[in-house]
Nucleic acid binder design. Structure first.
Lengths: 237, 237
DNA sequence: TAACGATCCGGACCGAGGTCCGTTTAATTT
DNA sequence: AAATTAAACGGACCTCGGTCCGGATCGTTA
């Protein structure tokens, strides 16, 4: 499995079942923190909570999603929410999980140009456009679900996306520092930036797409100016 | 003045004197929220607060800086802290203000290659390296001072940096979308990313520097693949 | 110097995130 | 079916960021 190297990083596990537990299922396929392996009541409550949260978000927007409100709406104790999702970020992230999986499936095993089959550069372009659209669609939730600065880049979902981009880059431009280049590209799609450009600066999404394409072109063509020997074995992501 | 266009954006002003008040002094030179124009007692308390905050940060790290703790250490009421700095982010930002100004002075009017006199591409490279170093030096504080997602790109300091990069890019590669390209470059220097790479992944700073140089080279040389007509008059940052 | 108005001060107060621990309940074993 | 145990539950409790407003202070004007 190409993404096996993700497995290597093992952080000290948190006490109980926790949605944001890292390490094990970084490649999330296969019901990561899902209802499986959960006691019956726990699974039921989890569903009730997610349902309640979704309802709240629909009614009062993202910041109407108070942990207490969710607990109340799901007729469940506050402690249960935290036990299940760890913290607010965990809950919001869980809300995004479905679309996340769909997206992963699309670029991991879907049809080209997003999925395998197309040349790497073209897959990259498709990837950016697709993720951009998705980010715009779920902007409010994405913003609310942003992790603290020191977690932001270790969140499983993020690592999968980054790893994928890095992989494509390695194929498209082998002599470059794909790890860092992947971060450069990914930054273009961060919810905060997209929010700023689209919502606050009123930029049309097409311009962001064009910029992404341009960036991919710049990076993949004229290959390696200094090409700073990417220390292959050393510090990875 | 080249940075005059920053002035155009005027947001509704906050009630009292507030450090994070935008619009007026985006080009911060000239004692932005400083002791001037403050009532004597206010100025005195401001100094006491900053002093106390710095002391707390030295002793207990960034998250020892509780608004209440700062107030107590400065022998001042809690309300005073908020009146002066708006919120926690404002206080932390004020703590960074000194180094911020120094840095601005360096690239605005200092000696080349950082200041004017060198060719744009080289200034860009110097800029990245310098900011990278500074970010690493103040990492803890920078992380703690990170603004909420919807403010992150409208913070005055950030706009100055972004504007400068955009300006250099316009000179170096006129046909590209400098606004967006500036965001791309700036993202490379964000505290969160630097923290992830340097602290969590143990990457040597030299590798980040090399990547920055490579990026600048890629962007400034092989100019414009699609060069997506940057809509000059339209939505600016 | 006395009076006045704008600004500032202080700390009680509130809401929300997060923790803790005694109690309850689901799965398993005998 | 009863006993056992690991897991889940619930809500009181704590902390901290942020707000509010009556009262004190400063700078100014007469």
């Amino acid at each position: 499995m190409l993404y096996a190297d993700f497995m290597s990083t093992a952080l000290p596990p948190l006490p109980p079942h926790d949605e944001r537990a890292p390490g094990l299922d970084l490649l999330q396929l296969g019901a990561s923190g899902d209802e499986s392996c959960l006691r019956a009541d726990a699974a039921r409550n989890r569903a009730k909570l997610l349902d309640a949260a979704a309802r709240l978000i629909a009614e009062h927007g993202a910041d109407g999603v108070t942990m207490e409100a969710v607990a109340a709406a799901a007729q469940v104790g506050k402690g249960t929410v935290f036990r299940r999702f760890g913290d607010r970020t965990g809950l919001l992230t869980a809300l995004l999980d479905h679309s996340e999986r769909k997206f992963q499936a699309a670029f991991l095993s879907g049809p080209p140009p997003l999925g395998p089959g197309a040349p790497p550069a073209e897959r990259l372009r498709a990837f950016g456009h697709a993720l951009l659209r998705r980010t715009v669609d779920e902007l409010d939730l994405q913003l609310a679900a942003e992790a603290a600065p020191d977690r932001r880049f270790t969140v499983p979902a993020r690592r999968v996306l980054h790893g994928h981009v890095a992989l494509l880059l390695r194929q498209a431009v082998p002599h470059a520092d794909s790890e860092l280049l992947a971060h450069t590209l990914m930054a273009q799609l961060s919810p905060a930036l997209v929010h700023h450009l689209v919502r606050q600066c009123r930029m049309p999404v097409e311009r962001l797409e064009a910029h992404w394409s341009d960036l991919v072109a710049r990076v993949t063509s004229c290959q390696g100016h200094h090409t700073p020997a990417p220390h292959p074995g050393s510090a990875a992501t």
